[in-house]
């Protein structure tokens, strides 16, 4: 079986964010992911691209979906995968992030996948290790593989990204998914809207390439893709929005609000969903929903990212 290889040269040693990637870089990763989908759909799902390599999943924040997606991606490419979650690490005992990085580095991993609650933590760690680093989400900063899997899902369903109107709705303020998606989709020529109440809208987001809409009706007008974001429970009791019932009434995606978008608009959600808060169950499970497909694309995109970074590993 053939290795998963970049169609064009991928020049980056780490994947820390969408920021810094060119349109060509993104397209390269998406094209590789298309091949990875085929790998995952076969009975024999193994490739030798990362054979002998060690991949560490270092998750300072709990995550089921992203961690298992990276784990499967690594294993399907033949790597040895080790999962480290904060609960069993020495970080709980007071070790600093840099000490953790130095310790792990001494174990000679080839790729570390990192999730951390603080923006910039993954960048800091990347400076202290010799291996490749993949950002699996740092605070409210970036979540590049989520944006890539969203782009792949859109491209496979709409045939293109350029010229599409994508409405990203909800808690933009706290969302790394929104930031990475705004950067990626605008780089590929989509028209991106950030839709949500002012209390959940970060100042200056319009300079990152998103048109700001503060009501869902204008936000969904002529949208081809409606991407809903998760609203954390602790943020819906008065600090940012008054209540979950008010949020659902004005910003939750139901059939009526989806009606403002283009006919046949597709619905996405990075998960995990709050049904009845940001999205109606009928929509989440309905014919316009791509939510389950997004999960499949997640594994493919992560295989593509790991394979692309493998090109630069020592002795690669």
């Amino acid at each position: 079986m053939s290795d998963l290889r970049p169609t064009q040269k991928f020049r980056h040693r780490h994947l820390l964010g969408i920021e810094g990637l060119s349109a060509a870089d993104i397209v390269t990763l998406l094209d590789m992911a298309e091949d990875a989908i085929e790998v995952s759909r076969q009975i024999e799902k193994k490739r030798a691209t990362l054979r002998g390599r060690t991949l560490i999943n270092l998750f300072f924040e709990a995550s089921t979906r992203t961690q298992s997606s990276f784990e499967l991606a690594g294993k399907r490419l033949g790597a040895d995968v080790m999962n480290m979650s904060v609960a069993m690490s020495s970080v709980k005992k007071g070790e600093t992030l840099i000490d953790t990085a130095v310790t792990l580095n001494a174990m000679r991993p080839d790729i570390i996948v990192v999730r951390h609650a603080q923006a910039g933590a993954v960048h800091l760690l990347a400076k202290k290790v010799d291996c490749a680093v993949v950002n699996a989400g740092d605070g409210a900063h970036e979540h590049p593989t989520q944006a890539l899997l969203d782009a792949l899902t859109i491209r496979r369903n709409k045939g293109r990204i350029e010229g599409l109107t994508v409405a990203i709705c909800g808690d933009i303020l706290h969302s790394r998914v929104a930031r990475s998606n705004i950067l990626l989709l605008s780089t590929l020529g989509a028209h991106v809207r950030a839709v949500g109440p002012s209390t959940l809208m970060p100042v200056g987001i319009e300079h990152m390439g998103a048109e700001v809409c503060r009501d869902i009706k204008s936000g969904l007008q002529n949208a081809d893709i409606v991407m809903m974001l998760r609203l954390q429970r602790e943020r819906m009791s008065g600090a940012f929005v008054p209540s979950s019932r008010e949020y659902f009434r004005f910003f939750g995606l139901d059939a009526e609000k989806l009606g403002y978008a283009n006919k046949g608009a597709l619905v996405m959600h990075p998960g995990p969903m709050n049904r009845g808060v940001e999205i109606d169950s009928g929509i989440a499970d309905g014919p316009q929903s791509l939510i389950r497909e997004q999960v499949e694309m997640g594994v493919a995109v992560r295989m593509a990212v790991l394979a692309a970074l493998a090109e630069h590993l020592p002795n690669g």
């Binding site: 008065g238 600090a239 940012f240 008054p242 019932r245 008010e246 009434r249």
Partner: peptide, 15 residues
């Protein structure tokens, strides 16, 4: 403006 007029949490202004 705020729940219970307590000055801490946004009231349900829309509803």
């Amino acid at each position: 403006l705020t729940k219970g007029l307590k000055g801490l949490e946004i009231a349900e202004i829309g509803l």
